[in-house]
Design a protein around this nucleic acid. Structure first.
Lengths: 343, 343
DNA sequence: GTTAGCACTCGAATTAAATGAGTGCTAACA
DNA sequence: TGTTAGCACTCATTTAATTCGAGTGCTAAC
């Protein structure tokens, strides 16, 4: 069966209406809602067709229609409009703020949540493949050594290690120079075992502490790799009965708190990038099981220097895709410009 | 009216039973549940008395009784038993882990949540009044300076500042010495304006960057002062209908995500300490409005050196107080021993 | 002081009936 | 051939009426 122009219009009207109300939409409503000037009877015929094609379903025999997953997909792929609404506003809100990346991302999550009324998450950029800019050792006291690692993009990690030997100032100076000459400009993956042995050799009697330090460096780089994720508006899901009831609320909230699920989401998202950087997962398309009843819209941001992260918006399937996409675009744009400014 | 021994026993039985089932408890149940060997009729008379005294209430005329806030209070104050149950287990679970404080606290929250089935929060120790142990400046590049501050208790803070002047190695060395000689061993509150002026004077031409650095130090110390709070098990509240229904779930979850409310809770808790370090807030006693329908049990831990923080467990009024208090004691004990080990 | 017995209360669960939004189909119309 | 009015039918939801039973308070007897 062919998807005529008219069918498209009706379909669009159904989706739009359902997004607004959350109620199954009937033929009479559409008959008035559109400018097609068709009677409800005609609409009914068309709707029967659309149902046969799999774009809409009836929750039960004598109810109106609601979009199926395929229906939402159709809408998202071919019927959404770029309105670029909120974007200007957004700009004002966020732009001036924070040079600290973590604060900025936290703010981003919050802003998106209040703006869209959905749950949001922002993953800190993975620094996978990111290079070491500076290693700085300092003596805290006779046996404790502070190790600070600065990475490209000014991501700072630190840890404290306990030394077995006594720490002299000369030793620390020597180690500082040793480590920096060897490791600066390298990413974690580029540090080979051979390199480490070489460094140890040069450290001579202090090879012990060198391995400890390198371990600490590796650990602090890899450390937060997994679950540095900021969330906001998790309780927005209570605004949508279809998510809040059936006690999947508990699961969802759990996912948001645990962050393990979210991390999974980030990983899967980063792996299937699109040209626009924006992906839409509807219902069963969801990369994670917990969110099979939701829709997820994600955007991948790229601050350069390998610093890529994911912004995600999680809501009911009847989410306002237009608005969400607009907002994401706006935020992406801003992150871009902030980044460029800092550069 | 006098609170006889028998009334106490009956009261205890009522509370215990209600904690378990969450259903109003009737006279017949008590008649069997206790070893008092009294008929339901007698119990009924006693219950009428207890109701008159305000310790129990009837949700409606022909229902069993449930404890009032005052009833819970009576129970907590005079009828709870120290069983020291889970504590051994706990020890195994937590002890070996993490020397990093933030990880440790996060784990603590998680452990308590899974152990008790309530929502938990752990505030990072306020480092109010905590002393600077070490300030370390390092050159990141020609115009960027890394400032690392290590506080007593090995709390590490860092930030990056942009310098207006070019940074030479000598300058940094000089500033390092200058700042450390002046500021080491001081808390934020002890740094006076006079001191800052003095330092600036000695820095001569570079007084600009000195203020920037001191600002950064102050900022990084104060920075997280507010809301470094770890939570876990927020979704446990779904296990208790009295919290999950009436849509206060949304509010509660919001509080847990926002952390602002939790922070308020921490502040208020720290201010009214008890001898045991453990406080119990029942229903309306709650320091924060959002949790008027909950009970909150908090413990204040003290790692010495001014590092005090709060552990809180939030659940329904019919929470298992005994178990919660036991768990808290266990955890406190462990934090203590871990701390002593590190010292 | 304790207990058996009984009438009474009232929320919760069950059943029955009424409502109404929406459909599919048919037949008439342009 | 496409559109539409009309009508019978379906079925979730709402409302009302009933039943059920756990639990109480009170009285009278032990």
């Amino acid at each position: 069966m062919e998807l005529t122009e008219r069918k498209m219009k009706i379909m669009q009207a159904i989706v739009r209406n359902y997004l607004e109300t959350g109620e199954p939409v009937g033929s009479r409503t559409i008959s008035k809602y559109t400018d097609l000037n068709l009677s409800s009877a005609t609409i009914r015929n068309e709707m029967a067709d659309l149902e046969e094609m799999g774009f809409i379903v009836q929750p039960h025999t004598s109810a109106g229609r609601i979009p199926s997953d395929a229906g939402y997909r159709l809408y998202v792929d071919t019927m959404m409009e770029d309105k670029m609404r909120e974007v200007e506003e957004l700009k004002e809100d966020l732009l001036e703020k924070e040079e600290r990346l973590d604060h900025l991302l936290k703010q981003t999550a919050k802003l998106l949540a209040t703006n869209t009324n959905y749950a949001t998450m922002v993953s800190a950029p993975s620094i996978h493949g990111n290079k070491i800019k500076l290693i700085q050792l300092s003596k805290v006291n006779l046996t404790q050594l502070l190790v600070v690692v600065v990475m490209e993009g000014n991501v700072i990690k630190n840890s404290i290690i306990n030394a077995t030997d006594d720490l002299t100032d000369e030793l620390i100076l020597k180690l500082n120079i040793l480590l920096n000459t060897h490791l600066n400009g390298l990413s974690l993956e580029e540090i080979s075992l051979a390199m480490i042995t070489a460094i140890k050799q040069q450290a001579g009697a202090h090879s012990n502490i060198v391995s400890d330090i390198i371990d600490a460096v590796a650990e602090s780089i890899r450390g937060e790799e997994d679950l540095e994720i900021y969330t906001s508006g998790a309780n927005n899901i209570f605004k949508y009965p279809e998510l809040a009831l059936n006690n999947n609320a508990s699961e969802l909230i759990g996912a948001f708190e645990e962050k393990k699920t979210l991390n999974e989401l980030v990983v899967k998202t980063l792996s299937d990038e699109t040209s626009t950087g924006i992906q839409v997962y509807i219902g069963n398309e969801s990369p994670v099981d917990t969110m099979k009843d939701c829709s997820i819209v994600t955007a991948t941001y790229d601050l350069g220097e390998g610093m890529k992260g994911t912004i995600g918006i999680i809501g009911p399937k009847r989410m306002d895709y237009d608005k969400v996409v607009d907002n994401l675009k706006g935020v992406m744009h801003q992150l871009d410009s902030i980044y460029k400014k800092n550069k």
